[in-house]
Design a protein around this nucleic acid. Structure first.
Length: 462
RNA sequence: UCCUCAGUAGCUCAGUUGGUUAGAGCGUCGGACUGUUAAUCCGCAGGUCGUAGGUUCGAGUCCUACCUGGGGAGCCA
């Protein structure tokens, strides 16, 4: 007999038919005569109740069916006599695949703290919350590919090991095959990488953007979606040392096109989650964040506010608020400022544009005022910056001048500069932190709980 | 990295101005119950109080350092 997934079983139940389900026991209760097993197989947040006539089964088998055990149940699908569910399975045979010692199995029937479950990341998939989160995470990954594919974007695989440290996005993890206890040094005292695997210093990528631009300036519209690495000692609920990023890069897009795409893209993903992950979303709305669905619908129904950095500074100055950090043109906006704009002043997502060039990356297109660049940050309530992007500087001379001004290693960027030398084109792009999107969509509050195996300072277990 | 709070039973927590044998709920285990819903009821077991020093007649409680975790900040996505 062929196994049926619980999701399929529940969506079109054939009452009276014999079915075979396989899954993990959530709870078991009952007495000498009748036993109820709540079974979940991960296909859906919903469980199927298995009813067992205790007299017709081996006592020891029933004893071994404890929370966490894995079983296969063959039985008849019937209308439930009880209250909590419509259908249930009247067990004919039960095969025990794997026992789960009740004394040592970490997960109880009752709830656990997020911190405890994080220490048990190998088992937390078996909880309702993490089942929901990771099903939604999958759906979002799928929707990202669908959105871009439908729009004619090409998925470009940019390298994970990189030989350049030019993006300036953060501290990098070194990649080497050399003996760490016996690193060769050259006369100046610095490490000699000439005999290393790549013959030069290499790192894990902090962004695929620069390579993405190379693709866009030939294929038109591309996107990357892959892991990125930052060796920053960031200890916050919004940062990971290893996280996934989506970076579209589009030829012939100006900053407005870029903003339009970013807004449409994020709204598409939110709508996809609401339309396709309904039960998981409702569970999270009930158990994790009562305002989740309402907030997501609000974001869908309202346009993002678009203002310039200069306008934001004016608003912040005029607010009369006492800030921990000073507001002033030329200073970067702090979390408290961004939060005020998003959560108090506008009460909706905000896109800030045209930042002072001094606080932004070298590749951003310089405005004619000589002071600002065509940057955009999309700010979300509760999360802060979810997207950072810009129109890129396509003029060779200006880009080179900026590289020199910022004392970046010009010779390492020869391939990047070549795109401006040969058939340059206006283009734009942005980066979306995948886990930050998942945070927003699920209502979870710690980024470590929306990636299966979080990598953070002092933590690489599992 | 900085600020701040916390670390006591498997889990979640209580523990009075420092004072005898450190408590509860849940879970586990044993028992009861013929339809349960994170079942219910009865009972047993379970703790070198994060680690290392120190103060004191006496430390879970006070002090110092370190470790781990939460929240906030910085860096950013």
């Amino acid at each position: 007999m062929k196994r049926i997934k619980i999701k399929a079983l529940l969506s079109s139940p054939l009452l009276g038919s014999d079915v075979l389900v396989k899954g993990w026991v959530r709870t078991k209760r009952g007495n000498k005569n009748i036993v109820f097993i709540t079974l979940n197989d991960g296909s859906t947040i919903n469980n199927i109740q298995v009813v067992v006539d205790a007299g017709s089964f081996d006592e020891n088998l029933l004893k071994d069916i404890s929370t966490g055990a894995c079983i296969a149940v063959n039985g008849k699908l019937i209308k439930s006599q009880g209250q909590g569910q419509n259908i249930e399975i009247n067990a004919t045979t039960i095969e025990l695949y794997g026992k789960s010692d009740a004394e040592t199995y970490p997960l109880q029937k009752k709830g656990h703290s997020m911190e405890f479950l994080r220490e048990n990341s190998h088992l937390r998939f078996r909880t309702n919350t993490f089942g929901a989160v990771f099903r939604i995470r999958h759906a979002m990954a799928f929707a990202i590919h669908k959105y871009f594919n439908d729009k004619g974007f090409f998925y470009l695989h940019t390298p994970i090991i990189t030989g350049s440290d030019c993006e300036g996005a953060g501290e990098m993890f070194h990649v080497t095959t050399m003996d760490l206890k016996n690193m060769p040094h050259n006369e100046g005292g610095s490490v000699d990488f000439r005999n290393d695997f790549f013959g030069k210093e290499t790192n894990l990528t902090v962004s695929g953007q620069l390579e993405g631009e190379l693709g866009a300036l030939a294929l038109g519209d591309i996107y990357t979606f892959g892991p990125t690495f930052r060796a920053e000692n960031s200890n916050t609920p919004r940062h990971l040392a290893e996280f996934w990023m989506i970076e579209p890069e589009m030829a012939f897009y100006d900053l407005t096109d870029n903003m339009d795409l970013a807004e449409e893209f994020v709204k598409y993903l939110i709508r996809y989650a609401l339309d396709n992950c309904r039960e998981d979303m409702e569970f999270l709305n009930n158990m994790i964040d009562k305002a989740l669905l309402e907030r997501l619908k609000f974001v869908l129904e309202n346009e993002f506010v678009r203002i310039t950095y200069t306008e934001a500074v004016t608003i912040l100055t005029a607010s009369g608020k006492k800030w921990d950090y000073m507001v002033g043109w030329g200073r970067d906006l702090q979390a408290e400022h961004e939060r005020y704009l998003v959560e108090e002043h506008f009460k909706r997502p905000v896109i800030l544009t045209d930042y002072p060039k001094e606080i932004k990356a070298f590749y951003m297109k310089q405005n004619d005022d000589g002071k600002t660049v065509r940057a955009m940050d999309v700010l979300f309530p509760g999360i802060g910056e979810i997207i950072g992007g810009s129109q890129r500087e396509e003029q060779y001379d200006r880009l080179l001048a900026r590289i020199k001004e910022m004392k970046l290693p010009e010779k390492d960027l020869w391939w990047y500069l070549d795109t401006r030398k040969f058939g340059t084109a206006p283009h734009s792009g942005f980066g979306l932190g995948f886990e930050r999107l998942i945070l927003f969509v699920t209502g979870m509050s710690n980024i470590r709980d929306v990636i299966p195996f979080p990598r953070t300072p002092k933590n690489a277990e599992f």
